[in-house]
Write a protein that binds this DNA or RNA. Structure first.
Length: 946
RNA sequence: GCGGGUGUGGUGAAAUUGGUAGACACGCUAGACUUAGGAUCUAGUGCCGCGAGGCUUGGGGGUUCGAGUCCCUCCACCCGCACCA
């Protein structure tokens, strides 16, 4: 019987479906284990070989845990709301729900092909009303809560209202964006509209003015990555910042907990570092500079209060609220045009462009609270509205950016830190001795900071403050294909939440998906939907992609629940995700928002854990090789560049990019060169696909020795993408080699967290392994398995494999597992082992990696039930005892010989024996042996003095 | 600039606590079988050298009996953040 994966795999795929092998129950005596993959956005391009890498790893781990006796939750679903489907709808009129459905079906087919052990009964789609009902429900909870900084917990907004009614908002320690204070009396006489505006400054989901990338020509709002150099990526039209009323989530309230709890997680240091960076905690002082001849005060935040004596001017963000109030009449024109200039610049430009200092003087002055001097107030684009208070006290003597600004505009510079004791310190390090600083002079920077903070608080002009870089997330999208906000507005524009009974608020049918005038969501046009609740108008913005993905892992626990997002029983049983596998591209956004929502739900008592993802592994990207001809010689001696798509008309190629030569690998020689005749073959092959025509001889180097002209192809690693013609579909690999082979080959490629190029050249090795493994059970294609008692050697080979593979699975080193299987099979083959006991155990060991072939052999071996429900083989050390040990013999650390000695020999006996070896004598010569080091079981080293 | 990561044969890689560098594969070379299929099997394969031997984990230096692994320093590439007060 020959190994035919296509038959075996089709058979078991069907059988498993029939028996519901991978169905998981929420009721079990077994310990739970939750293995989760980041669910995919179902794009029109389908899966390529890079996507399943993480899924295969997690599937192996899930199957392993099942064999080890755990009740394993291993679900899959779809992040089904998203911009591409909407874009596609605008272009083609196909409803996003329909294109998403098509794409989901294709994904499902591709996933099924690979043999994953997902429990598809638990599938979730974020765009399904029965799912987004609960996304809306969580949103309403956020809307109806504020954050108490004293208890470090979310609390109902109704309690806050009670506080307002009794004592206004004085002395409140809560997360907020409220500037003004008010008394209980003042609160009571406020109109509904005013109250609504105040409460927005406390709610965890709230409305505020936010800035969006507005493109007038396209009549739409663009995402950051759709804007390049201040122009829209599509069309190249100008993009400007536009103020719009937007929903936001007050994630900043949770900054401290998001930071502190990182320590409890088993994530990589790199990932934790990224999150810490993003949260960006800094401690310093908040204080005020009074504006001269005015009642205004400018609030600033500084981490270096010690440098106040060197603050000779202030810089405000051009968008700062006070700018228009402060500006003097003679500077008004200058300031206005500068503000226009800054508005025209995208965030990316403003931050990443080569440092060219820009700024204007407002004409106004503020008073330095310590020197008492009047300092000029400037505007500069290097100060950001959203960071800190949007204003800084500039200290050109100790800050590089302030220094450059002062230099450019001829402002006063005072040295306040003497760094001569720290010649190697970086400019931003907080070290040195204070000079020219009144009472601080002579202090070390660290002491000066403390002294100044005390002084500031003593004088009552400011307070100690912790600042976070983390910003509240913009939660509004002017789009159709997202969750509708369960919010309506009354005639006063006051936001009224829908009730739970009114959820889900379902998206209406739509035919025209183009944005409505003013950059509004196309939902505005569906008046019957907007006005469905009499006297009220529904919010027409929708939620962003990260809404649905911030809690989907909880829904898997109880996906069909109609009364709750998941039952208490399910949540208490599954608790949290034990292992989460996904790409680094979600390192910050998705993981941060999920943690935030989870902590919020924890505060409300809905989930039993404070963190959603205990352990996290980032799989690397699978890249493709790109083949480029970047030195093609033209007749005039210039270098030819261009893109392969341009080769449709060869004479139109222009300088710009290297020429991409897709699928050229098979035509290259060992030095990656291609000769003229080989290129013609390639050309004809490509020509069929791309209708390329033209005279090629002009691109070849002419060789001097008369051999065939050639050029050299440059090989690089690049992302897989449709536009690069380098996408590899897993279906093709599975069709040719089988899913077992595909799975093992992806693991064999290298460490899971490393990115690596896809290359099918090595797949034959894994294919041969599976055939060899199959062949162990057969003799001349006849089933041939022996029932004898295994020999010591057979046991030893098996248990070596059990130990190595089990250890390696536990540390997610799947590539070395595959090697270990290969070695084991090579060894068993060498001694012609066909022993049932051995093969049966090995088969279970291999089952997580190659679920199909092992299931087939499990049944051929006469076992009942599935191999995937068998018991994992126990490692038994007694089979590993060996009577002889091999030792490398080194002289001065260099290996000179290898000896085998009885394991009973003492170090002394080994030493004496070693001295008699020829190789040792040769290398020791007349010199004296100073020391002999015997590391038991490892090696022997002779130290010889020269 | 800051933070994180990577660098080992022709290629993908292994070496888990400082202990035989290159396991396991791909490729390549030679041979066997087969009247050619891109099948299978055997042997060889880091580099230099006929050989003894020498050299070798991005470069340089150090600690150690012993360093891919630890320390210092420099270089290259990748990822994330970035005028962060």
């Amino acid at each position: 019987m020959l190994y035919h994966p296509e038959n075996i795999e089709a058979k078991w795929r069907k059988e498993w479906k029939k028996t519901g092998l991978y169905k998981v129950s929420n009721h079990s005596n077994k310990p739970k284990y939750y293995v989760l993959d980041m669910f995919p956005y179902p794009s029109g391009a389908g899966l390529h070989v890079g996507h399943p890498l993480g899924y295969i790893a997690s599937d192996i781990f899930a199957r392993y845990k099942r064999l080890k006796g755990f009740n394993v939750l291993h679900p899959m679903g779809y992040d089904a709301f998203g911009l591409p489907a909407e874009q596609y709808a605008i272009q083609t009129g196909v409803h996003p729900a329909n294109s998403t459905e098509t794409n989901v079906n294709r994904y499902r087919e591709q996933l099924d092909n690979i043999g994953f052990s997902f429990d598809w009964n638990r599938e979730v789609r974020t765009s399904d009303p029965s799912y987004y009902k609960w996304t809306q429900w969580i949103f309403l909870k956020l809307f109806n809560h504020y954050y108490d900084l004293v208890t470090q917990k979310a609390a109902p907004i109704s309690e806050l209202i009670k506080i307002f009614e009794t004592s206004g908002n004085f002395h409140l320690q809560v997360a907020n964006s409220q500037d003004a204070t008010f008394t209980a009396e003042e609160w009571k006489v406020m109109s509904d509209k005013e109250k609504d505006a105040v409460l927005m400054n406390y709610r965890l989901a709230y409305r505020k003015i936010g800035y969006v990338n507005w493109c007038e020509a396209l009549g739409t709002v663009l995402a950051n990555d759709e804007v390049k150099d201040g122009l829209s990526e599509r069309g190249g039209y100008p993009v400007e910042k536009k103020a719009m009323m937007q929903w936001s989530l007050r994630i900043t309230a949770y900054a401290e907990r998001l930071l502190a709890d990182l320590d409890t997680l088993e994530w990589t240091d790199a990932l934790k570092a990224m999150q810490r960076n993003w949260i960006g905690k800094s401690e310093g002082a908040q204080l005020f500079f009074e504006v001269a001849q005015s009642h205004q005060k400018i609030e600033i935040f500084t981490t270096r209060p010690d440098t106040i004596f060197g603050s000779t001017f202030m810089v405000l963000a051009p968008e700062h609220d006070l700018v228009d109030i402060l500006v003097t009449t003679d500077q008004a024109e200058t300031v206005k045009s500068y503000k226009e200039y800054v508005a025209s610049r995208s965030d990316v430009d403003r931050m990443s462009e080569i440092k060219e200092v820009t700024g204007v003087f407002t004409g106004a002055y503020a008073t330095n609270p310590f020197t008492g001097k009047n300092v000029p107030i400037w505007l500069g684009e290097y100060v950001l509205k959203d960071y800190g208070t949007g204003a800084i006290m500039a200290v050109p003597g100790d800050d590089e950016r302030d220094y450059n600004f002062a230099k450019k505009f001829g402002l006063e510079i005072i040295d306040i830190v003497d760094r001569t004791d720290y010649p190697n310190a970086a400019p931003h390090e907080k070290v040195g001795k204070m000079i020219n600083s009144d009472f601080l002079t002579g202090m070390e920077v660290k002491d000066a900071i403390t002294a100044m903070l005390n002084k500031i608080e003593e004088r009552g002009i400011g307070t100690r403050k912790t600042n976070y870089k983390l910003r509240d997330a913009n939660f509004s999208r002017q789009r159709y294909w997202g969750e509708p906000f369960p919010i309506m507005y009354n005639h006063n524009g006051v936001a009224i939440p829908l009730t739970t009974q009114q959820l889900p608020l379902i998206l209406p049918q739509l035919e025209n998906f183009k944005p409505a005038p003013g950059g509004k969501s196309p939902l505005v046009r569906v008046e019957s939907w907007v006005n469905q609740f009499e006297g009220f108008q529904l919010e027409t913005d929708t939620m962003p992609g990260f809404a649905g993905s911030s809690w989907y892992f909880l829904r898997y626990m109880d996906p069909d629940n109609k009364d709750n997002f998941a039952s208490e029983q399910a949540l208490n049983y599954w608790q949290d995700v034990d292992l989460y596998v996904g790409g680094t591209e979600h390192a910050v956004g998705h993981l941060m928002y999920s943690r935030f929502w989870h902590k919020f739900l924890y505060d409300l008592g809905y989930v039993p854990t404070t963190e959603p993802f205990k352990k996290l592994i980032n799989q690397g990207m699978i890249t493709a090789y790109g083949y480029y001809a970047d030195h093609l010689k033209m007749p005039d001696g210039s270098i030819l560049t261009g893109n392969i798509k341009d080769l449709v008309n060869i004479d139109e190629i222009t300088a710009g990019n290297p020429v991409r030569l897709s699928y050229i690998y098979d035509y290259l020689d060992s030095q990656n060169r291609i000769t003229q005749s080989k290129f013609k073959e390639y050309w004809e092959h490509i020509g069929k696909d791309y209708h390329v025509d033209g005279n090629l001889s002009k691109y070849f180097w002419i060789t001097e020795d008369g051999s065939e002209p050639y050029f050299t192809v440059n090989i690089v690693q690049e992302k897989m993408s449709k536009s690069k013609f380098n996408v590899q579909n897993p279906d093709e690999i599975v069709a040719r080699y089988g899913a077992d082979c595909f799975r093992m080959y992806e693991m064999f490629l290298g460490p899971i967290e490393q990115s690596k190029p896809w290359d099918t050249k090595g797949i034959d090795g894994v294919n041969r392994f599976l055939r060899k493994y199959w062949a162990l059970y057969f003799n001349n294609n006849e089933w041939s398995v022996s029932d004898e008692k295994p020999t010591g050697e057979e046991y030893k080979i098996l248990h070596t494999a059990i130990k190595k593979i089990t250890d390696d699975i536990e540390r997610f080193s799947f590539n070395t597992c595959v090697s270990a299987f290969m070695m084991c099979v090579n060894e068993l083959k060498r001694i012609e082992c066909n022993n049932r006991t051995i093969l049966n155990s090995l088969n279970i060991l291999l089952a997580p990696f190659a679920p199909f072939i092992t299931e087939e052999l499990h049944h051929l071996l006469g076992n009942d039930g599935s191999v995937h429900e068998a018991a994992y083989p126990e490692y038994d050390e007694q089979h590993m005892i060996q009577d002889a040990v091999e030792y490398p013999v080194c002289v001065n650390g260099k290996k000179r010989d290898v000896i085998a000695v009885a394991s009973s020999m003492t170090p002394k006996e080994i030493q004496d024996y070693v001295m008699t070896l020829d190789a040792v004598k040769r290398h020791v010569g007349d010199k004296a042996v100073q020391r002999v080091i015997v590391v038991p079981g490892k090696m022997i080293n002779l130290v010889v003095k020269e």
